[in-house]
Design a protein around this nucleic acid. Structure first.
Lengths: 350, 350
DNA sequence: GTGAAAGCGCTAACAT
DNA sequence: ATGTTAGCGCTTTCAC
């Protein structure tokens, strides 16, 4: 049997309540008492039973992070950032994977696990504003991440998708590119990252007085490397002419670049490429990949903070907050203005 | 206030125990009773309080997975596999990140969180057999992952490192390569993946009657892309001649390949490269990366199963088990025997 | 500044 | 096949 509060209390010659006070850093304790208790704790190797604490206090010190999967670098890096942010605030993170499955995205929101955690960070791929009923059933504090369900009654942290895509497109335009592909569109979507990014792309063209050519908008239903490779192969086979690509995420860009290299298309000379997400891999691809960095750390920190505020209470009448993290245009070789050769500088390695 | 077992019991006209039985799928319940209870549960939207259950039963249904970080694809993919395996068995996973920090690796083992979970899957980078004391203090079931602490009194799941490295090296030898680099050695280590893989490399050379040249053993203290790039740059600058690379993981290989491409070294013609881990990224690099796939799913499934067995008890007198997952040599372009050009086949995309 | 009593929601053990 | 009793280890409330 593990040692309990009472064992410590007995050894220290105080009541259980006092031990509890010490463990929880309750301010008004005599120094001598505190030391005696601390000594007893050390001697017995006491560690609190979190289930008991959770039962009594209604707090578990654990938050859930619901994301599609961890094989996708974007989410893995996001999860990493969230865990660090949570750790700073003394919280543990229970990750749950929806697998990008719509039914499971809803199911996880109803699951018993959500009774065991203090709050949820939720990033959906499929659930949308038509599923608000499911979202509203969630009784614990929840903060939404990403570009879905903007009408939900929850705090929401996301990036400036449209502005980011616009900056990416303008970057290519500034390079003198005139036939720029919007790579990764989801035609059916009217919300979500894909449509926001497409809007940014169009805004950039328009501001530059360039014509919008639908043939340059490429659908790619799933944003993975493989999907990007397949879509690029199809595009080349169709013979569409282009000199720039705004890929809606880095994985798509990397998949496309793989095919371009295979076919002997020079980057950035013949085709300049820019992605979205700033995943680590883009620093080491050849050419290294220019991208829109979404402010991952800021998103993670903000989301956890908002959630903690909701958990702590006292903001119950504060309406849902929307936070837009700052993005940054990261210039690498895939959009460098001078050609890349054997003597080119190494990719940035900050 | 959330609804409790008693609310359900009252509504269904049964005792709390019966509701508990239903919730826990206890076999001997009259069909009619069960249905009444289920209806009441549905009506009230009852979901069990996991803290209370955990307190009473001593089980939380949560296991910890302690790994260095999630920015590293190997660990992200491992975590993903572990979570799926755990999910199959109805367990949730709480991930804790050691950050590759030695002190934190030890600290997490003592942390209070370990009182709240039923078991731990532990993958250390730094803790070794000299730290067995810390490991032995862990009072809950623990299964070790990876190549450290083989002398700990715990079940241990790992891959056949030496055999894998030997197979990788033999693959290059079969290609006719004679100056093969062992990339990623840790000279100080006498245990751990680095030394096991180096041993496999040497065994392959020896079996082929080739001389071991220490100049071809390259130290790379950290196994990241960046580190691989830096080490390869240094090696090329030194003018060491080589025609093959056995990289001790894929990230190192990818970093090295990036530099080789930069310098105009043709792969696999001038230098054939093979890695370790089979991370997704290797399928899309140029050239796509041959690798030793470590049997990630098998490792994850086995580790979770062993842990569950220990948690269930009844195997207390079973001595520590060692499980070696099967590896597989994955041939891709970086070790293809024919040159890669614009018409080369696409990488495998299974 | 510290203690005593109560009870969070659940299930183990036993009774029926 | 179902009910009763007790108590897991902690924190809350309130008393001192």
């Amino acid at each position: 049997m593990a040692t309990t509060l009472h064992d410590v209390a007995k050894l220290a010659g105080v009541s259980a309540k006092t031990v509890s006070n010490v463990v929880n850093d309750y301010p008004h304790i005599k120094q001598a008492t505190k030391e005696r208790v601390l000594a007893a704790i050390a001697e017995l190797g006491y560690r609190p039973n979190l289930s008991a604490r959770g039962l009594r206090s209604g707090r578990s010190g654990v938050i859930s992070l619901i994301i599609p999967d961890l094989r996708n670098s974007y989410f893995a890096e996001l999860a990493d950032a969230v865990m660090h942010a949570a750790d700073q605030l003394g919280l543990s993170v229970l990750i749950e994977l929806s697998g990008g499955d719509r039914a499971r995205e809803a199911e996880l929101l109803r699951g018993a696990r959500l009774r065991a955690v203090d709050g949820v960070l939720y990033s959906a791929l499929h659930l949308g504003d038509e599923d608000l009923a499911v979202v509203e059933e969630v009784t614990i504090p929840m903060v939404l991440l990403g570009e879905r369900m903007f009408n939900a009654p929850n705090d929401h942290v996301t990036m400036r998708n449209t502005e980011g895509a616009r900056a990416a497109t303008e970057h290519l335009i500034a390079l003198g590119r005139t036939r720029i592909v919007a790579f990764g569109a989801h035609r059916a979507d009217i919300v979500g990252s894909a449509s926001l990014r497409l809007a940014g792309y169009r805004a950039a063209l328009e501001a530059a007085g360039m014509v919008f050519d639908p043939a340059l908008v490429r659908e790619v239903p799933v944003w993975g490397r493989f999907d990007g490779a397949v879509a690029m192969r199809a595009m080349l086979d169709e013979g569409v002419a282009f000199d720039g690509i705004v890929a809606f995420n880095d994985a798509l860009a990397l998949g496309a670049m793989r095919v371009l290299s295979e076919r002997g298309v020079a980057m950035p000379d013949e085709v300049a490429v820019i992605g979205f997400d700033d995943i680590d891999e883009g620093r080491y691809s050849l050419p290294s990949l220019s991208t829109i960095a979404p402010g991952r750390e800021q998103i993670a920190r903000t989301a956890v903070s908002l959630l903690v505020e909701r958990i702590a209470g006292g903001v119950d009448d504060v309406p849902p907050r929307r936070v837009y993290a700052d993005f940054e245009l990261v210039r690498r070789e895939s959009t460098a203005s001078s050609p890349v050769g054997a003597d080119s500088p190494s990719p940035d390695v900050s």
